[in-house]
Measured scan of single mutants.
Amino acid sequence: VTVDIKGMEYHFDNPEEAKKFAERMAKELGGELKVENGTLKVE
């Protein structure tokens, strides 16, 4: 699973970990979490 945090890509084997990480980063950065082509994106 790929997580894109404002252009920086992180790769996770575990989808649950990827989702938790993306949600935490969205909250910390005040960004919006989206799913695009199987990639979790925070913008």
Rank of each mutant, 00 (worst) to 15 (best):
K6D: 15
P15M: 15
M25V: 07
A22C: 08
A26D: 02
A22Y: 05
E32S: 14
L40A: 04
T39E: 06
E32L: 13
E28Y: 12
F21P: 00
T2P: 02
E23V: 08
K20T: 09
E32K: 14
E43P: 05
E17R: 04
K34W: 10
E16Q: 09
E43T: 14
F21H: 00
T39V: 15
F21G: 00
V1F: 14
A18E: 00
D13E: 11
E28A: 10
G38Y: 02
V35P: 04
E36H: 10
K19P: 00
G38S: 06
F21K: 00
A22K: 03
V3K: 01
G38L: 05
P15F: 15
L40Q: 04
H11P: 01
G31Q: 06
R24G: 06
E43R: 12
A26I: 09
V35M: 12
G7A: 01
K27E: 10
A26C: 12
M8P: 00
M25K: 07
E23G: 01
V1T: 12
E9T: 14
D13Y: 06
H11A: 05
A26S: 06
E36D: 10
L33S: 03
H11L: 08
K41W: 09
D13P: 09
V42L: 10
A18D: 00
Y10E: 00
A26P: 00
G31M: 13
E16I: 09
E17K: 05
K6S: 13
G30M: 08
A26Q: 06
F21R: 00
N14A: 04
E28Q: 10
G7D: 02
E28T: 08
G31L: 14
A26Y: 04
K19H: 11
A22R: 05
K6E: 13
G7T: 02
E9W: 13
A18H: 00
K27D: 08
E23F: 06
N14W: 03
E43L: 14
F12D: 00
T39S: 09
E32G: 07
K19Q: 13
I5Q: 01
E23Y: 08
E32R: 13
I5H: 03
I5V: 11
V42R: 02
T2W: 12
N37F: 07
M25C: 13
M8I: 14
G38H: 06
E17T: 06
F21C: 02
A22H: 01
E32Q: 14
E36M: 10
K27Y: 13
K34Y: 11
D4E: 14
P15K: 07
G30Q: 08
G7Y: 04
L33W: 10
M8R: 14
L33V: 15
M25R: 05
N14Q: 04
V35C: 15
E28S: 07
D13Q: 10
L33A: 05
Y10A: 01
G30E: 07
E23A: 08
E23T: 06
L33P: 03
G30R: 09
D13F: 07
T2H: 06
R24E: 11
E23I: 11
L29G: 04
L29P: 02
I5S: 01
N14I: 04
L29V: 05
G31P: 03
V35N: 10
D4W: 15
V1G: 04
G30K: 09
D4L: 15
F21I: 00
T39R: 13
F12Y: 02
E36R: 07
K41M: 09
A18K: 00
K6G: 14
L29D: 03
K19F: 14
G31H: 06
M25Q: 05
L33K: 02
T39Q: 11
V3G: 01
A26K: 04
F12W: 01
G31N: 04
N14K: 05
M25E: 02
E16C: 13
N37I: 05
V35G: 06
E36W: 08
E16A: 10
E23P: 00
N14M: 03
L29Y: 07
L29M: 09
N14S: 12
D4Q: 14
V3F: 02
R24F: 13
T2N: 05
R24T: 10
M25F: 05
E17A: 09
I5C: 12
V3T: 01
A18R: 01
V42Q: 03
A18W: 03
V3R: 00
D4P: 02
P15I: 14
K27C: 14
L33N: 03
E43N: 11
Y10T: 01
F12G: 00
G38T: 05
N37C: 12
V1R: 06
K27S: 10
E36A: 10
F21N: 00
A26N: 04
E36P: 03
K20W: 09
A18P: 00
